[in-house]
Design a protein around this nucleic acid. Structure first.
Lengths: 241, 241
DNA sequence: TAAATAGTGTCTTTTAGACACTATCGC
DNA sequence: GCGATAGTGTCTAAAAGACACTATTTA
């Protein structure tokens, strides 16, 4: 082993180290469409533009742990479906310095989403236009509550687009479709979630068959209340197969 | 904005920074089964055990760039299908210091795989047992060329298991299935690749129909040579849809 | 012509879409 | 009963598995 190899393996101080951050794509279903929670940047670069909430990873903190901490610090949320999305590490992605960012996808149930908005009024619920464009998706458009198009800071538009793609891709072989729903939900609500994520409308009988055949949900025997028409049965997510 | 927020945003020196590395899961099809290229660790920790090839990310180097550099430095390979897999960032994953590692999946065509083995004899081609275990996969067993079970250093067994899962998951909606094949290949070779990755055997007519209907491949009109039986037609991968 | 694999025809099974129909609630 | 939505029956279309059959090459 050469000395260079030795140093490669043993002396990390020989390398200048990048900063590592976590950025969160926090998505909920707001006014019927996928919506992300954004924060406004106060300083340059990208002052005044909207960005994903994020923060530095502490030296004694795992990255998943950091993501949960930032979820709490920036949005006041203690529990959500949180999964790692992708790591963005181009040299120039932050003009100030070298920052490698591990992006996380966070799915917020409606109550968590609304209470985050209420408790942290600086958060912006930005609607996401999800054009169908075949399976592969395409660029997503992010809009202010007044439906004005928004430009995101840094490479955050790429991160957001990747989050939507991931969500779509995992929709029918994982449980992500349930993250936006309360514990008990109707099949129509579940279908609304799928339609919002895919950006298309689905066939009702086929959807019901598919969901029931998967064995992921079970009826509770209870029915929804408050509707001025026939109340639907409430289902619950049944974790294991 | 409080001073703490200001520092959070602007003074990365306030944080001790982790080291960031790239680890490569380099997979080829060797002796009929998925096989990873491993390097032997000379020093503690995990001295004498096998590990994924990896290295530090330079401060002026993007992470994709670092992955390509390490692919070349450690395995002498200049071109391969290389995609980011997942980022591993537990605090204790390296007992010496805080290291966050971005894992990459590299798929090597047969000629690249064999020439890497020849030019870098310290690389070990470790066979991977891929039990079917439903769609979700399970733990993978890694074996030496003599079929002895191997224990991998660090959390590299987890990384490898995730690579296999990724490969399986992407098999029928992406082009990863072609990465292990030469430019021109027979449908039987393509099916062999799929069967090796999935760990099950597939129905021949159904497989052929599916592949041809996808529109991803086209016949070349040429036929394989050297077989002592009816030669199969050679196909090529047709990139765009 | 024998051996071996390439490649196909076709039947069955499964799954998804279409669409109309019935059921059940509040008012 | 009316309006509205829940929930289902059934036909059709598309896709996948099973399996036997034909085709084409070398030796």
């Amino acid at each position: 082993m050469t000395e260079a190899d030795f140093l490669d393996d043993y002396d990390p101080a020989a390398f200048e180290r990048p900063s590592v951050t976590v950025d969160l794509v926090l998505l909920g279903l707001h006014e019927g469409r996928p919506t992300a929670l954004l924060v406004k940047r106060g300083q340059h670069p990208f002052a005044g533009q909207w960005a994903l909430p994020g923060g530095f990873v502490g030296i004694d903190e795992g990255i998943d742990e950091a993501a949960r901490r930032i979820l709490h610090d920036k949005a006041g949320i203690r529990s959500a479906h949180l999964e790692q999305l992708y790591t963005f590490g181009s040299v120039k992605r932050d003009p100030r310095m070298r920052i490698i960012s591990v992006a996380y996808l966070g799915l917020l149930a409606n109550d968590a989403f609304e209470s985050a908005l209420k408790e942290t009024p600086t958060l912006l619920p930005a609607g996401i236009d999800v054009p169908w464009q075949g399976e592969k998706g395409g660029p997503v458009e992010v809009q202010s509550p007044g439906h004005e198009p928004l430009t995101l800071a840094f490479d955050h538009a790429d991160i957001l687009a990747m989050a939507i793609l991931r969500l779509r891709g995992k929709l029918d072989y994982s449980d992500v479709g349930f993250a936006w729903l309360p514990k008990h939900f109707t099949l129509r609500q579940l279908q609304d979630v799928h339609e919002a994520i895919l950006g298309i409308s689905l066939n009702k009988p086929a959807f019901r068959r598919r969901m029931l055949d998967k064995g992921w949900i079970e009826g509770t025997g209870e029915r929804e209340t408050g509707a001025s028409f026939r109340p639907a049965e409430l289902y619950r997510y049944k974790p294991q197969n």
